[in-house]
Design a protein around this nucleic acid. Structure first.
Lengths: 208, 208
DNA sequence: ACGCTAGTTGTCCGATCGGTCAGCTTCTGC
DNA sequence: GCAGAAGCTGACCGATCGGACAACTAGCGT
């Protein structure tokens, strides 16, 4: 079998590092950082624990390598949003960027969202925490109401949960192959509803 | 100091079991079930590891004792909702019950929501998972759209995140003593917006 | 005074944790 | 041919894990 590394552009090159990163991500997201042992990660990926520690200096370094791409992406999104004056159009574009991010990095988001509080001190975690605060302020700083902060938190934590843990057992039997685009569209509707500014937010008159 | 056990009705009796349960809950919610060691739980509570294993047969038994009251409460709420024919009033009352539940058992909810997938097999976890499915079906079964399932998941996971992890670092400096009732009211508005049935759900015309 | 029970603890155990290190293979440049 | 780097591994280390067990103390009914 000839796997030419030079023509890696076609299909994504699957280096050992990448395999370990992916496996570690799945483990961190499902059993948590503390619960995921290096030996188990290595075993699932088909390597030895020593190999993991050859590619990554420590367990924390592995976590950083796993989360960094997602944080980088989120940072880009925030900077793009802050770079342009805020209009309804720019805010809507931000939401679309945000949904792209959530869907692409759902496992990374889930890992950070649910374990950031117990992993403070690790560089990438602190960096992500600061980023979330800046994001929150950018979205709902102008009036800074408690409700707006809750709306942002619900969108963030709700999406992380729904896409990773929620959909798994929400319909355990009834599984008629829900299409990704259908999930994406529905997610867009709900998140836009949550993050819409007060000016355009509809007020239900029944159900109050 | 006289602490009479017979007149325990006034202030909640603080038995050793209760102290250990509370400490364990805090640890499970913050560092996860796998990450929380019995020795550390005992240390924080001011007892020895042996004492923990005297009151609870095992670490899993401790988890069950910690989560069971919350699951019982949630079961009551579901049964109450299913017992009456569904009207807007009954659905609204359910939302209020639900919010009461979330606020009272936020740590238990957070623990279950974020770790259920890695703890399957433990009785109380499986029971809670089944309960969530039944809840989800009760709320949005009639039309069973993907969007409604996402709405339910966002409300559940979003609330669990916002109330435990989100509010902690969302406003790290600006902390003007946000009142509990203010949080409750805002949470009510957002959750009602998420869980309102299609018939009364407002459709924003801008921002689409 | 007595035995009984509930509560608490220190000690010990096998398993597993993250991490180090020496050695093994395979490939490459000279 | 061979030196050296890269990749990978098993053996080993001290620390910590969940848990078993015996011993100790304090209270209570007799």
């Amino acid at each position: 079998m000839i796997t030419d590394a030079t023509t890696a552009a076609s299909t994504a090159r699957q280096t050992t590092s990448d395999e370990l990163r992916l496996t570690a991500l799945e483990q961190f997201a499902s059993v948590g950082f503390a619960g995921a042992s290096l030996a188990h990660i290595a075993d699932v990926a088909g390597y030895s624990k020593s190999s993991v520690l050859y590619h990554f200096a420590s367990k924390e370094a592995l976590l950083e390598a796993v989360l960094t791409p997602a944080i980088d992406r989120l940072e880009e999104i925030l900077e793009r949003f802050l770079a342009t004056p805020e209009t309804e159009a720019s805010r809507l574009r931000f939401v679309d960027d945000f949904i792209d991010f959530i869907l692409e990095f759902r496992l990374e988001l889930h890992t950070f969202i649910n374990q950031a509080q117990s992993l403070t001190g690790i560089a990438v975690i602190d960096r992500a925490g600061l980023l979330i605060v800046k994001l929150s302020n950018a979205i709902c700083d102008h009036n800074a109401s408690v409700e707006d902060q809750i709306r942002f938190g619900m969108a963030l934590g709700g999406a992380a949960y729904t896409l990773v843990a929620g959909m798994n057992f929400s319909t355990p039997v009834t599984r008629p192959e829900v299409s990704p685009t259908e999930v994406r569209d529905a997610l867009r509707v709900v998140i836009i509803e949550l993050l819409a500014p007060v000016s355009v937010r509809p007020q239900p008159e029944t159900w109050k």
